[in-house]
Amino acid sequence: MRHLLPGALLLALTAGAAAGAPPAPRPYSGSGVLVVQDAPGREPGTVPLYHEPGVERLTELAPFSLPHLSGAPDSALVAVYERRRGWSRVALDDAGRQGWVQDDRSWRYIAWREFLPGRSVRVLPGMKKEWYQVKSAPGAAGSAAGAVARDQRVRILEVEDAWARLENPAGWMRWRDPDGRLTVATELAR
């Protein structure tokens, strides 16, 4: 019995430390998304990731193991931080390490200003009120015109820099914060 008490105490302390761990940071938005898809008739494999486009191989990963914003069994949305002639800089893991991957023929890059209009999004959990507040105009000049509820899906009509014009409630909301982190979650399907 005396030997069980230190073990139970250690287990309780480590469980408390894990429960108090900060939540994972929101992903950076970057310049757009890479729609990663399986090519019909091709065996799924791995793709090499590089320190610079085509230079200094870092690792090889299955494309669907890259941190993605959303996904389905045969496709995923991966945030792209930079583009160079058919290469995309993406996150390698949730720790924020990044690498370059050469675009596959079956993949598509879409800039945020083209991707978001017409899509429904929802506010990510744990956001400050200022990030889900709806304004009459984008930026500091807009007056408060309401707020989006945490689980409410809203349709984006247009994008202007870090602001998205919503259909209902009508107005503008930030889709990314000043640090470039996403404030909304989106999906591939419209």
Rank of each mutant, 00 (worst) to 15 (best):
W172M: 08
K128S: 12
R97L: 00
A18W: 10
G139W: 01
D151T: 02
S65M: 01
W175A: 08
S70Q: 04
L61H: 06
Q133H: 11
D94H: 12
P53E: 11
K128M: 10
V121I: 12
S29Y: 12
T46R: 05
W112N: 15
R113Y: 15
R181V: 10
A17G: 10
T59C: 04
G180K: 09
Y28I: 09
R174A: 12
P178Q: 06
A8L: 11
P23Y: 07
W163N: 10
G99P: 05
E187A: 09
R108W: 03
F115C: 07
Q37Y: 10
W131L: 06
L157Y: 02
L66K: 06
G41W: 14
M1T: 09
S31F: 14
Y28M: 13
G142N: 08
A62P: 12
R26T: 11
S70G: 11
A111M: 06
L34Q: 15
V121Y: 01
P63D: 03
V154H: 14
L49N: 04
G54K: 06
V123S: 07
Q98P: 08
V184W: 14
A24N: 13
R150A: 11
V154G: 02
A170P: 00
Y132H: 08
R176V: 14
W112I: 03
N168H: 06
P117E: 04
L157A: 07
K135W: 04
V101Q: 00
W175Q: 06
